[in-house]
Design a protein around this nucleic acid. Structure first.
Lengths: 154, 154
DNA sequence: ACAATAAAAGACCAATTGATATTTTATAGT
DNA sequence: ACTATAAAATATCAATTGGTCTTTTATTGT
């Protein structure tokens, strides 16, 4: 559903939301390493996002990417708008024409509420909210340096 | 989420389920025209599906693609297994590693039940069930020859 | 036997997405 | 001013997906 590019972008933004500030910037190289994403690829994505104002950046020594408190007030949809080149919420899941609440395809009643819930979350929760949630849930943006316990692999 | 190929394949199979029989076969050309899908593309997909036993076919004059009652007992997942080259139900929606019920990403609780419901429907309902549902709902597999009323376009 | 029909097979081409490498520009520190 | 650093810009390349075309094989009807 989401392209690799979008997933990478989201992870990178959430990483910055959690770790960066005006006084603590991250270069593409660090981010690529930390999240185990191909360097040149994430560099390009970060540039796009910076240009669009989703994140911030400064050139030169001590420069890098970071997020301001304002940046963190953006939502996930603002990331997708930049990276994804079509609206993932549009179109019938099965590709039927004129699929709608009135003319539902066989999975319409499963897909429509899902899209709705997802869109709402991507629209109404800020990036800051997401970052906090991840921290609270004990989720990982990367497995870099995470010790995997034997029992977890079974 | 689904590739074009899968969507085309599903529509074509449902069309055959609704219209074909051993005594009423359809050539790729008719199907392509009826569903407004590129001929060569759908031809290839139909061949794959026939090879896999999802649909039936015979060569030569009076030949074509069709579905037997047994074919119609297959489910949608059997189509996806042939056409889609990766399991669409696997992997974290946001691309986070080790996302699970215990380590949920911020949209896990939205995505997991959706995937579940979808998988169940694709697994437990037959193609015949789907075809019937579409007929009953008044949905369209194609807009070929469907008159669109003015009010519908507003 | 042979002509016509239609699927099967496979080679091929185009567009999109994923990924890389190179050059240019801005800035900080000396 | 000069050097080092790091983003910005851009050109390029590879892989996947989407789509087309040509040849071969099977079958039917005469």
């Amino acid at each position: 559903m989401l392209s690799n590019a979008s997933k990478y972008a989201i992870r990178a933004v959430l990483f910055l939301a959690e770790n960066s500030s005006y006084h603590k910037k991250y270069g593409s190289k660090q981010i690529a390493e930390e999240l185990e994403i191909p360097l040149s690829f994430i560099a390009k994505l970060l540039q796009q996002l910076a240009k669009a104002g989703v994140i911030s950046s400064t050139k030169g020594p001590k420069g890098g990417f970071f997020m301001t408190p304002q940046n963190m007030q953006n939502n996930i949809n603002s990331i997708l708008k930049e990276i994804e080149n079509e609206n993932i919420f549009e179109g019938c899941f099965l590709g039927l024409p004129r699929c709608s609440d009135e003319n539902p395809c066989p999975v319409h009643h499963i897909v429509a509420p899902f899209k709705d819930a997802l869109w709402n979350k991507f629209q109404n929760q800020t990036i800051l909210d997401f970052a906090r949630e991840i921290k609270q849930n004990g989720s990982f943006l990367s497995l870099k340096g995470v010790e995997i316990k034997r029992k977890d692999l079974l």
